Computed example of a mutant assay.
Amino acid sequence: MTIRLALVRQRYNPFGGAERFVATTLEALMRKNDDLSLTLITRKWSGGELKHGVIECAPPYLGRLGRDRSFARCVQRTLARERFDLVQSHERIAGCDIFRAGDGVHAAWLEQRSRQQSLLGRIGTALSPWHRYTLAAERAMFADPRLRAVICISELVRDDIRRFYGVPEQKLHVIYNGIDLERYHPGLALEHRAEVRRQHGIPEAAPLFVYVGSGFERKGVAPLLAALSRAQATDSHLVVVGADKKLESYRQQAERLGLAERVVFTGGIKNVLPYYGAADAFVLPTLYEPLSNAVLEALACGLPCIVSDHCGAAELIEPGVNGHVCDALDVAALSAHLDRLAQPGVAAGMREAARAAVGHLGLAAMSERLLGLYRSLL
């Protein structure tokens, strides 16, 4: 029996982890099962040629609220017109069979965000039409009786959904993102370490941390810079890979902290493999992150990782074995973790354990779990 599956994702950004996951998942599912017919419903896709059907939902809009609301309405009209066996949405849209919570729980994100906001900032968030719409859409989607399953990309996401919306346990399925273990591997160090360090003037023996992610405020670049400036290992370097509208202000922060010679900002780049290969360890002190593909990639490359306790990937970290975990805003703890991994031989001694942490998360394993869920629902 051919399963007609529709995947809903509003947009594709080649620098976004969630969007890259959709592209990877589509191809992995198509390779895994000839009886699966895939259709992508999207506003805009700029990720390259697709080997499956695409339905564009691109009504005109004004502003972020208008963008999300108009897309949701267009998707709902499309689903009423088309006939699919299953509809899996990666957006907060009621009327779908499956919701993949790849962006986490908006209510949980706002809870964490409020920790670093001023009183006026919290009031502004509470009054924001877009945040109010997103929370209402999230609430309506989880309460919709047509929702039959939720793919939680970490236990963190599952627990947040239960806590905020009381979704029954039987609807919640934890399926971690798959990782291409052949593309991301410890051998990248042999290919890229020397050249990348030469390009950026980083000494071969200097401890090098890499950060990968866009949206610096949420993902903790400011606390990371502060922690690096406090670290006792004054030869440690940091490469920040990712795009941000305020990137220049973070460069200025690094200069004020005396880090201009030890921090490199690359901006958004599509191929991050050379930087994984050049680094000794990975760091992502994010305020809220449902999982983080970048952490999975770094672990697969044999890099011990420092992550926050509100990052789903913290579930894969065994402190002192393949990395460390701390509160996103605890600059002192983050600085201490940087110093531990900067000690000679410490990060290198964790490489094998880092790789082993994601050895069970290959693309084939993820595809099997997804297909098993689809078949159970049918």
Score class of each variant (00 low, 15 high):
S89W: 11
A94G: 12
I93A: 07
G104A: 02
R92K: 14
R113A: 14
I93D: 02
L79K: 07
A80C: 02
R113S: 06
E91L: 10
H106P: 04
G104S: 02
E82V: 11
V105W: 14
T78R: 11
Q112D: 06
V75M: 05
R77E: 14
I93E: 05
A108N: 04
F99L: 15
F84C: 01
A107S: 11
R92D: 08
A101K: 13
E111Y: 09
E91Q: 14
G95Y: 10
V105L: 09
G95H: 06
E111P: 07
L79F: 09
R115Y: 03
A94V: 08
R100Y: 01
R77C: 06
E91S: 09
Q112P: 01
I98Q: 00
S89R: 12
I98P: 00
V87P: 00
A94I: 08
D85S: 05
Q116P: 00
G102Q: 04
Q116N: 02
A94K: 11
D97W: 11
Q88C: 08
F99P: 00
E91W: 04
A108W: 05
H90W: 03
A101C: 07
Q112N: 07
A108C: 09
G102V: 08
F99H: 15
R113I: 00
L110H: 06
G95M: 13
D103L: 09
A107K: 12
R81M: 06
R100I: 00
I93F: 10
F84Q: 05
S89I: 04
V75R: 13
D85F: 13
A101Q: 11
G104I: 03
A108Q: 07
L86C: 02
G102H: 01
A94S: 15
Q76L: 07
R81P: 00
